[in-house]
Amino acid sequence: MANWAWFHKWGSPRWFYQFSGRLLPWLAVPGLLLFIGGCVWGLLFVPPDFKQGNSFRIIYVHVPAAAVAMGAYMFMATAAAVHLIWRMKLAAMVMKVVAPIGASLTFLSLVTGAVWGKPTWGTWWVWDARITSVLILFFLYLGIIALHQAFENREAAAKACAVLAIVGAVNIPIIYWSVEWWYSLHQPASIKFIGESTIHPTMLRPLMATLSGMYLLFGWLVLLYTRAEIIDRERNTRWLQDMLLTDRPADSAERGA
């Protein structure tokens, strides 16, 4: 049982609240630096693309948003499985807070994709396989959020959403693959978009920076929202009341950081 100690420790909202408080700046500061730095680098210092000119630069937001949104769903589904199998309350909280963050990122990647599409393809929307997949991912997120809100009972909501998230995670590969197949069936051979492999290393490096920055910022947001969720759920517990009442200076210092 000894090697499971960390697991139970992580499952304790109290321990998580205290630990995550120390972790927050370590995610926020490098995350912001990498993301903003990468954006500045990509927008100002990378030479324009010989085919697309300056419009390609939106990938420094678009690609990280899409990648993290996708990863976030799998992260949420993992939290869902942990919640269902080990009945860890913390996992339910994480699952609940990831859904809106993931949905926002998906929406961001759809909007930036449309903005990118206008100068590139001459239209805001193309029924391209990848865009369609992201749109479906957006709907999957919204379904989970809607289901969560429909339940009055918090525990039932968490369990129902966990089942739906897992069902969705099983389905996502099938959906992506079927959309890919659907697109290949209908794709006119004359149109060919730039492939990911042709990207030049000078363009790639800032992308790596914004991508890793986005992951860190995602982690930061998840911790932040989970802490808020803990405060909401555990407001009647002794440890939280004690901490919030006595640690007020420390708390505000943390917020300043």
Binding site: V167, G168, I175, S178, W181
Partner: peptide, 14 residues
Amino acid sequence: SLIVLPLYIPVLIF
């Protein structure tokens, strides 16, 4: 319909 329709997509496609 919100939670089920996205999951129906592969069936519709094939």
